[in-house]
């Protein structure tokens, strides 16, 4: 089943075309990453799907609903973690979750949800005493307490230290194993690579590529073989690395010479990503 279907989605803010006709689909149970630099249109896309913004063109189907009609039945089924949001500073974690749980017809157990995000030891502490990372966990707990099928995570780890980021990743993997569909935006490549089953790279309001992390690397062209022979660095690009390497090393062996600094290198996802973004800076 398809959870989200977006076709030719367009949005402009005044003169600025924030989304220039993007299309993608997300399957149920999939973790889908929207990757791109700041200002690429990630948050605009997510906020249209969440029902916060109206689109200017194209069609959007989220769990069978049109989000901009903001139906209650739709909001019963989604969970949202916004990029910035705070909660009532003087309520405790458990009190805040109970308030939110009351908004839904069917909600998860509050204590269990608090434990799920690892805030069990903080459940009776006021929110103003939580650290930044703990507040983000609370945001996640609030998104989950309505037991949603689909969870939106808008830059869930921006501003985290590496340890907190790892913990957040574990939590997202946990959600995935609960069978939730997850749409996450990030400008961290490693995060997309770690978490997303498939990802779309957004640049200037357009999707420049879409696929699994592996596919994106495969599409990136030849393997590079580097070595130094007689002090001279040689670079070889090939689509048949096995054959090329066999011939190269075979020749070196028969001639009894050493290929210094021999290195076989596939483009990493990071190379692919940076290459995609570089095209943005190139003049038209």
């Amino acid at each position: 089943m398809t959870a989200i279907r977006v076709r030719d989605l367009r949005k402009r803010y005044g003169q600025v075309e924030a989304l220039r006709g993007i299309s993608f689909e997300i399957e149920e149970g999939e973790v889908f990453g929207l990757l791109g630099p700041n200002g690429a249109g990630k948050t605009t896309t997510v906020e249209i799907l969440e029902g916060y913004r109206r689109r200017d063109g194209g069609s959007v189907d989220v769990l069978g609903h049109d989000p901009q009609r903001a139906e209650r039945a739709f909001r019963e089924r989604i969970g949202v973690v916004l990029q910035h949001s705070e909660m009532w500073p003087n309520l405790t974690v458990a009190e805040t979750l109970r308030v939110f749980a009351g908004y839904y017809r069917r909600s998860r157990d509050v204590g269990e949800t608090i434990a799920l995000v690892g805030l069990g030891h903080k459940r009776d502490d006021r929110i103003k005493t939580l650290s930044g990372g703990q507040k983000r966990r609370l945001d996640l707990a609030l998104a989950l307490v309505g037991d949603p099928e689909l969870v939106f995570l808008d830059e869930p780890t921006t501003g985290f230290d590496p340890q907190a980021r790892r913990a957040a990743w574990e939590m997202v993997r946990g959600l995935r194993s609960l069978g939730k569909t997850i749409l996450l935006t990030t400008h961290y490549l490693d995060e997309a690579q770690q978490l997303a089953d498939r990802l779309a790279v957004l640049r200037d309001g357009e999707i420049v590529t879409i696929g699994t992390p592996g596919e994106l690397v495969d599409a990136s062209g030849p393997t590079e073989i580097r070595y130094r022979l007689d002090g001279e660095l040689t670079l070889l690009r090939t689509d048949e690395p096995t054959r090329a390497l066999h011939e190269l090393t075979g020749r070196a062996l028969t001639e009894g010479r050493e290929l210094r600094d021999l290195e076989v290198r596939r483009a990493s996802l990071e190379d692919v990503y940076l290459e995609l973004l570089r095209e943005e800076e190139a003049p038209e």
Binding site: Y52, R75, I78, L82, S85, M87, Y103, Y104, R105
Partner: peptide, 14 residues
Amino acid sequence: ELGILKRIRSTPLP
């Protein structure tokens, strides 16, 4: 300004 109103808008509370 804290974002509480926006956050509540995505819940089923009318």
